[in-house]
């Protein structure tokens, strides 16, 4: 068996996205628990911009960022579960892909609920809350709070899987998400990078869509 070689697996946009998301989720939690609802809303809107960026980068970004590359059907997931050596590529494993989709989906739901929620005192609300009745916006806050447990459970699973891979598979996944490089078997194709200016366009699009939502989705609303 030949020595593994370190190759590029995550590009800069993916790594920035990942760690900014970690920071903003932590900050959102802190802000709402300490009564800073305005900070919480801004943080949530920043997360929305990042999520839109990630969805676009998943279509036109680097090879390991693309959904078409890493999203695996049940057959490949089961195959990977039976025999981990059946899969060798740069990027998300077939099982990891499920985790990524679940996390992105759960966060989109969470942000979406927040857009329609009003705080309990009626002092601050998501930019789309005035489209629905006061009682429904209250309900949205309740679901937004409850849905956090889904997000938290997925984060625990995500971190738990990283610990498992570190202890039992001798894989340093966190380091790879920091440096962008990971030791892979020789012959495995490394990440094909995307174009930096495409990443910038994706980010601008994410921010633009968020700004449009903040403005109350004109011309459909006020």
């Amino acid at each position: 068996m030949s020595e593994p070689v370190k190759v590029a697996v995550w590009d800069v946009p993916i790594r920035l996205f990942h760690w900014l998301l970690v920071g903003l989720i932590g900050f959102s939690f802190y802000a709402v628990k300490s009564g800073h609802v305005v900070w919480h809303i801004y943080s949530g809107l920043a997360i929305l911009s990042l999520l839109i960026f990630r969805l676009l980068w998943g279509l036109v970004g680097s090879s390991t960022a693309r959904f078409a590359t890493f999203v695996a059907g049940p057959e490949r997931v089961l195959g990977y579960l039976r025999d981990k050596s059946s899969w060798a590529a740069a990027g998300h494993s077939p099982l990891g892909a499920l985790s990524v989709l679940a996390l992105l989906g759960a966060l989109l739901v969470q942000v979406g609920l927040g857009l329609f929620a009003v705080d309990e005192d009626g002092l601050n609300e998501g930019p789309l809350a005035h489209f629905i009745s006061v009682d429904k916006a209250d309900l949205m806050r309740g679901i937004h709070g409850a849905w956090f447990f889904v997000v938290a459970a997925l984060i625990v699973l995500h971190v738990g899987a990283i610990v498992y891979y570190r202890l039992f598979q001798k894989q340093k996944l966190t380091k790879a998400m920091i440096t962008g490089r990971k030791a892979l078997e020789p012959g495995v194709a490394p990440m094909r990078p995307g174009k930096w200016w495409v990443a910038v366009i994706c980010l601008i699009a994410g921010i633009a869509v968020t700004r449009w939502i903040i403005a109350g989705v004109p011309p459909f609303g006020g």
Partner: peptide, 8 residues
């Protein structure tokens, strides 16, 4: 509730 109506 009154505050939410006013805010909205």
């Amino acid at each position: 509730k009154a505050m939410k109506i006013l805010g909205a």
